[in-house]
Design a protein around this nucleic acid. Structure first.
Length: 207
DNA sequence: AACTCGCCCAACCGCATGGAG
DNA sequence: GCTCCATGCGGTTGGGCGAGT
């Protein structure tokens, strides 16, 4: 038996949103705020499922969206964040003001992947494709990847102490110009001061 | 003009997650 | 601890559109 549908599909519209639907959604959220997505369509008089309304608002109608082309700085930031976080598009989007996870995901798949390939870098692993091209950047990223692997190993071997709150470990992963606030750090250990990551002047530093 | 092809991106789908009861 | 439900997330799809022939 399959999972029950999130909404009554037989009485919901699908596909592209009309201007009128957009206006209804925006007007409703302006009055009632975000949230309660499941009941929103009915309350707003929309024949859409809640998920669809949420997606439309987040990816298209939100007033703080930047839209328009990505800058070179945004490109580089996305690449670096992806090398650290992988396909965690929502986390990456959280670091780019006015950009959505969907937008970044699309942009990654259509532009940045190609850009990295042309640099000779595997867009999945951020390692050099054939040991050539843009070696300095690739090497820095490689350091990060191996660091992350060690972190994961540490994490799994110290899972018993994982309940320590994040507020107790703010020193790791801090960077003056790019505060990632990552929560994947292992528990505090004697080697606490040994590692550090930092983006400086657009370059990834590994200390 | 008509057709094909490839790219782009909005939207959908299914699974994961977290909170309430 | 378990179940149910709402929401969030990432992968994928498909329609629109422009370029090329």
């Amino acid at each position: 038996m399959g999972r029950s549908p999130c909404c009554e599909k037989a009485h919901t519209n699908k596909g592209a949103w009309t201007k009128e639907e957009d206006e209804r959604l925006v007007a409703h959220i302006k009055v009632h705020g975000e949230g309660c997505w499941r009941s929103l369509p009915k309350a707003a008089g929309l024949l859409r499922c809640g998920k669809s309304c949420r997606l439309r608002w987040i990816n298209y109608l939100r007033p703080d969206l930047k839209r328009g082309n990505f800058t070179e700085e945004e490109d580089e930031l996305i690449i670096k964040l992806h090398s650290l976080l992988g396909n965690k598009w929502s986390l990456i989007a959280g670091r780019l003001q006015g950009r959505t996870d969907n937008e970044i995901k699309n942009y990654w798949n259509t532009h940045i992947r190609r850009k990295l390939l042309s640099r000779g870098i595997d867009p999945t692993t951020h390692r050099p494709l054939h040991g050539q091209a843009d070696a300095s950047f690739a090497t820095e990223v490689e350091k990060v990847v191996s660091f992350m692997r060690r972190e994961e190993e540490n994490k799994s071997s110290n899972s018993s102490s994982n309940s320590r709150s994040n507020s107790e470990e703010p020193k790791r992963w801090r960077c003056p110009d790019l505060n990632l606030e990552l929560c994947i750090s292992p528990p505090l250990q004697d080697s606490e001061e040994e590692y550090g990551l930092c983006f400086t002047n657009g370059l990834l530093e590994f200390r």
